[in-house]
C-alpha cells in the first residue's frame, strides 16, 4: 500500500488503460449478447403462441428454468462443459440465452398490447396469417418493446462482470489482475465502479427518455 494515504491517484491513472481494454470486451459482450437475446427472445415469444400445449408447456418450463436460476452458475456450467469453446464465446451465448428468456416476456407483452381491433381488421381484409404478423402485428409490437430492450441492455452491461468467473478479461477481471500485480485493489476496483457508472447512467437516462416517447 501507498505511504502517504490509502488512495493513490497515480495508481488510479495507471490502471485506466487496462480497464478501458476491459471496457471494450464488456461492451462487445453486451452488444453480441443483446443481439442474440433479441432474436432468440422473439422466436421464443412466437413459439409460446403455438396452438398446442405440448409445445407451450415444455418451452415454458425451459424458459422459467433459465430465467429463475443464477446467470453466474449457468456461465460456469457452460464453461466447464464446453472446454473447447473460447470463454468469450461462451459468455456471449449464455448472456444471450439468459436474456432471451427476459426478452420473450417483453415481446409477449408487446404483442398482447396490440389492440384486438388490429387483428380483426386484418381478418376483415382477408390477409394471410404470415402477412398479418409481419406487416401489422410485429411492427406495432416491436415498437413497444424498444424501451424494454434498452433496459435489459443496461442491465446486461452491468452483469458482464460475471464473466470474470470464466476467465474472460472484461473490466472487472482487468482490475483484479492489476490488483494482484500491484496490490492496489482500492484504486482498481473503485475505478471499475466509476467506469460502470459513467457508462450506464447516461445510457439509462436515454432509455428512460425512450420509455416516455414510446409509452
Amino acid at each position: 500500500m501507498n505511504e502517504e494515504g490509502i488512495w493513490s491517484w497515480e495508481k488510479a491513472w495507471e490502471v485506466l488503460p487496462s480497464l478501458l481494454r476491459g471496457l471494450v470486451i464488456t461492451i462487445e459482450a453486451t452488444v453480441v449478447g443483446m443481439v442474440i437475446a433479441s432474436i432468440l427472445g422473439l422466436l421464443i415469444a412466437l413459439a409460446m403462441r403455438a396452438p398446442t400445449r405440448w409445445v407451450r408447456g415444455p418451452l415454458r418450463l425451459v424458459v422459467d428454468f433459465i430465467r429463475m436460476t443464477p446467470l453466474l452458475v449457468q456461465l460456469v456450467f457452460a464453461w466447464l462443459l464446453l472446454v473447447d469453446v473460447p470463454p468469450l464465446v461462451i459468455g456471449f451465448g449464455v448472456l444471450g440465452v439468459h436474456y432471451a428468456t427476459y426478452m420473450s416476456e417483453v415481446y409477449r407483452a408487446g404483442i398482447e398490447a396490440v389492440p384486438p381491433g388490429q387483428w380483426e381488421a386484418a381478418t376483415a381484409l382477408n390477409l394471410p396469417k404470415g402477412r398479418t404478423w409481419f406487416a401489422i402485428i410485429l411492427p406495432q409490437a416491436i415498437r413497444k418493446t424498444l424501451p424494454g430492450l434498452g433496459n435489459y441492455a443496461v442491465s446486461m452491461f452491468k452483469e458482464t462482470p460475471f464473466l470474470f468467473a470464466i476467465t474472460v478479461v472484461e473490466m472487472y477481471s482487468a482490475a483484479l489482475n492489476f490488483g494482484a500485480n500491484t496490490f492496489s485493489y482500492i484504486e482498481a476496483l473503485t475505478m471499475v465502479g466509476l467506469l460502470f457508472l459513467i457508462v450506464s447512467y447516461p445510457t439509462s437516462l436515454l432509455v428512460r427518455r425512450m420509455e416516455i416517447r414510446f409509452a
Partner: peptide, 11 residues
Amino acid sequence: RGTSLVVQIFW
C-alpha cells in the same frame, strides 16, 4: 443502480 452488483460486493 449504476455501478454493478459484482463491483459493489467485491468493493
